[in-house]
């Protein structure tokens, strides 16, 4: 796979052709069907898509917390694991999900913040003890030091009266505070990669602005790589360096944030951008829409997953062959697109 314009730095995390399927009794759901991307330290990668596009399952696959009856069936998740001061490249898809390495990485080197902080915190334990638990899992600190560290973390994410807050329960905090506490917990082991799955979706715009500011500030201070999963294109434009657009488990387009928003190539990306009302667009006129709806996971269309909604559908090609994610042109390969408008079918699958 061609590398993105991330300089010559070695990416921290490289996902290649990841396939995560679910096998319920009714059939197979190809939740992630060949996702590839990479992210470097200090950078923010956005994964955008609508419901069912596999963005959350991609994140859960990286952390190896995909629930039964799902699993990674193919692909690589190459991560630069730091051990004894050295960096070793590990394929997270191959190692045991509950082995020592993965347990060290999960929550330690790769942390995750979830969409709904109310359901992610235990309702019957004070948030302090939950953060202390996370700290002690990944560091040799004693109880008292861990508690001090927890209070420091709460202060770092902008929570006042930190010591008192440690004794409070999740229900006592407002949505914004809960999300801050969630971020504090994710930061407790100083992760190198932070996966944020819809971190602001449940929040008001003013609180969202606070949380996005906080994430940016923390990234500058700690140099983390952030994978930001969201359906909100405004948040992506605001936060990300590179963007991956997913549709029905496949990456349809990938590129720098500027290329995705100002020079989108895939018909889906284009339509998605046109169909959102903006503060600057003309009011009360019909918006361009994408016809139809996202298909049910058991009714995936053959060929290109988007072909039945695509205005530029090429009969005989798009419904027969599956497009591969390829560089737009060989010279400057920072934008990748999987669409037959830009390249001929290479596979012989019918």
């Amino acid at each position: 796979m061609a590398t993105l314009a991330a300089g010559k730095r070695r990416p921290l995390l490289r996902v290649h052709n990841l396939k995560t399927y679910f096998f319920p009794d009714e059939g197979t759901v190809r939740a992630v069907d060949g996702a590839s991307f990479e992210v470097c330290a200090g950078q923010t990668l956005g994964i955008v898509g609508e419901s069912g596009c596999g963005k959350s399952v991609t994140a859960r696959s990286i952390l190896r917390i995909v629930e039964h009856p799902g699993g990674i069936v193919e692909g690589e998740i190459r991560y630069l694991h730091r051990t004894d001061g050295r960096e070793v490249e590990l394929d997270l898809a191959q190692i045991s999900a509950d082995g020592p390495e993965m347990r060290q990485i999960r929550g330690g080197e790769i942390a995750m913040i979830f969409q709904e902080p109310m359901t992610s915190f235990s309702p019957v334990h004070p948030i302090g003890s939950q953060i202390v638990e996370a700290i002690r899992l990944h560091s040799p600190l004693g109880k008292r030091e861990a508690r001090e560290r927890a209070a420091d973390l709460l202060r770092q994410v902008g929570i006042s009266r930190a010591e008192a807050r440690l004794n409070e329960y999740a229900y006592q905090l407002s949505g914004g505070l809960r999300q801050r506490a969630m971020i504090a917990m994710a930061l407790s082991a100083e992760p190198r990669v932070l996966i944020a799955d819809e971190p602001t979706t449940a929040l008001d715009v003013t609180t969202q602005a606070q949380i996005l500011d906080l994430l940016r500030q923390l990234q500058t201070d700690l140099g983390m790589a952030i994978i930001l999963i969201t359906h909100n294109l405004g948040v992506v434009a605001e936060m990300c360096d590179t963007v991956v657009v997913m549709y029905l488990g496949r990456v349809v387009e990938e590129g720098s944030v500027d290329a995705i928003f100002h020079n989108p190539k895939h018909p889906y990306t284009r339509l998605l951008l046109q169909s959102i009302p903006s503060l600057y667009s003309e009011a009360r006129v019909p918006l361009p829409t994408i016809s139809g709806a996202i298909p049910h996971p058991y009714n995936r269309p053959e060929g290109c997953p988007f072909h039945d909604r695509c205005p530029q559908f090429i009969p005989g090609t798009c419904d027969r062959h599956v497009p591969e994610l390829q560089a737009l042109d060989e010279e400057k390969s920072d934008q990748l697109v999987s669409c037959f408008l830009y390249h001929e079918p290479t596979d012989e699958r019918a």
Binding site: S174, A209, E238
Partner: peptide
Amino acid sequence: LLSSVPEPDPRRRSQRIVLEGE
């Protein structure tokens, strides 16, 4: 409120008024 709406355009990233507190 207007300033805190993220605009779907990376070229319009702007300094926004972030309201303190709750």
